[in-house]
């Protein structure tokens, strides 16, 4: 198939699909709000990766976890 024609077909496939949605529109709004809350609000402000935030490289991360594992058994 001719490449530009393929893209044109794909574009019209998705364009028609999205514009003719009924309940789908509400669902997409919910999905976007949910993803925004999860990835922008929760992930950044409430769920920093503990090791990535506090340590710069794998060596310091493994040293920290090793020390934690040793200390927690005492």
């Amino acid at each position: 198939m001719h490449i530009p024609k393929l893209f044109q077909k794909l574009y019209s496939f998705y364009y028609d699909g999205f514009t003719k949605m009924t309940v789908g529109k509400t669902l997409w709004i919910i999905v976007f709000i949910k993803l925004f809350i999860m990835f922008i609000v929760l992930r950044i402000f409430f769920f920093p990766n503990y090791l990535n935030t506090n340590f710069n490289n794998d060596q310091s991360k493994s040293n920290h976890v090793r020390q934690e594992l040793i200390n927690k058994s005492n």
Binding site: L42, R43, F47, P48, N49, Y50, L51, K61, V65, L69
Partner: peptide, 18 residues
């Protein structure tokens, strides 16, 4: 389910590394 992965990284970091 992705929230579970957030929790691994924040709350259960020793486990995640291990």
């Amino acid at each position: 389910g992705i929230i579970l992965e957030f929790e691994f990284g924040t709350n259960w970091s020793n486990y995640s590394w291990f």
